[in-house]
């Protein structure tokens, strides 16, 4: 990438400040200011409708500390993160390396794997609820009636519900990772590959010594993004189980939403979302650190 030199000293800075305005105004008014308001609300008792917010200090946070649903949600977010930084990453790496190594059907497979990622969460969730998990019309019901195996919808069982939801989300997500890994594999230097092949390196050696080191920066960046997104995850959980049964799939985002829009405890909801933000900012620190070289230096 080229670095640009400041050659023309007399050039006015004003146009550049004006060009910054649209993005600054947009993000400032819709993201930054409301986020600051949320931080403030988390120290108040507020139902979201009335004009008065009562300052109660750390009360919301103290309540959260003794709130088992909050801890359950946090635990589920951590489980979710562990699932997502392993399963889809491994599957996507396997698929992309196989495609790159054997150079087969690059465009076709990439396009097929990406289809679930392109569909709306609502569409995917409704499809899975009806044609896979439904006991009357879905795959689960069909297998049940066929009597081959006793199977019930994983979503209805407290111990498997989170896995069931994660399965749908991973099904929709891993193809995206494959596209990214394939793009990174494309940048593997030719000479490295050729010299390794002349040395008679086998597939495993090629993977661990050539492919993996080359795509590692991309993989680690994606892992950090996965951590960030795992603590924000909402759509599939809410659409498939609404956090149930009995809070077994509750995550911080679904808990925030139900606190705010069902219990009208906006203050407490703000406190939960702030804790999400804090966890996110730890991950953000790593993200900034990893992308720093690219975007800042």
């Amino acid at each position: 990438m080229k670095t640009r030199k400041k050659k023309d000293v007399r050039e006015s800075k004003l146009p550049y400040h004006l060009l910054s305005l649209p993005a600054v105004l947009l993000s400032g008014s819709i993201v930054l200011i409301p986020a600051i308001q949320t931080i403030f609300s988390s120290f108040t008792k507020w139902n979201g409708i009335s004009k008065t917010k009562v300052w109660i200090g750390l009360q919301n946070y103290k309540e959260l500390f003794h709130d088992w649903i909050f801890w359950k949600s946090l635990t589920n977010n951590i489980k979710w993160t562990l699932l997502f930084i392993t399963v889809p990453v491994i599957v996507a790496m396997l698929a992309s390396v196989l495609i790159a190594y054997y150079r087969i059907g690059h465009k076709t497979f990439q396009a097929i794997y990406l289809v679930p990622y392109l569909l709306a969460p609502t569409t995917n969730a409704i499809i899975w609820l009806n044609i896979i998990f439904s006991p009357s019309a879905g795959l689960v019901g069909f297998l049940q009636r066929a009597g081959w195996i006793s199977i019930t919808s994983p979503l209805g069982n407290m111990s498997t519900a989170l896995l069931g939801v994660a399965m749908v989300d991973i099904w929709h997500y891993w193809g995206f990772l494959t596209v990214i890994f394939l793009a990174a594999l494309r940048q593997t230097p030719m000479d490295q590959l050729e010299s390794a092949q002349l040395d008679g390196a086998n597939g495993w050696r090629l993977f661990f010594h050539i492919y993996l080191p080359n795509i590692l920066p991309t993989v680690s960046l994606m892992m950090v993004l996965i951590v960030i997104y795992s603590f924000m995850t909402y759509d599939y959980i809410y659409l498939l189980t609404m956090g149930g049964p009995a809070h077994s799939t509750e995550v911080l985002s679904t808990y925030t939403y139900s606190l705010a829009f069902s219990a009208f405890k906006f203050g407490k909801a703000a406190a939960v979302s702030l804790s999400m933000g804090l966890i996110g900012s730890v991950a953000a620190f790593f993200y900034t650190w990893l992308s720093r070289k690219e975007a800042v230096e």
């Binding site: 640009r4 993000s27 819709i30 409301p34 949320t38 939403y257 909801a269 991950a283 953000a284």
Partner: peptide, 27 residues
């Protein structure tokens, strides 16, 4: 070409990680 590029870059990098719930209630 303007010095604000550094804080702006950091701001938008950080904004990637702000959960929707952080600003959705006031919004």
């Amino acid at each position: 070409r303007v010095k604000t590029w550094r804080p702006l870059t950091l701001y938008f990098l950080l904004a990637t990680t702000v959960p929707l719930q952080m600003f959705m209630l006031p919004l």
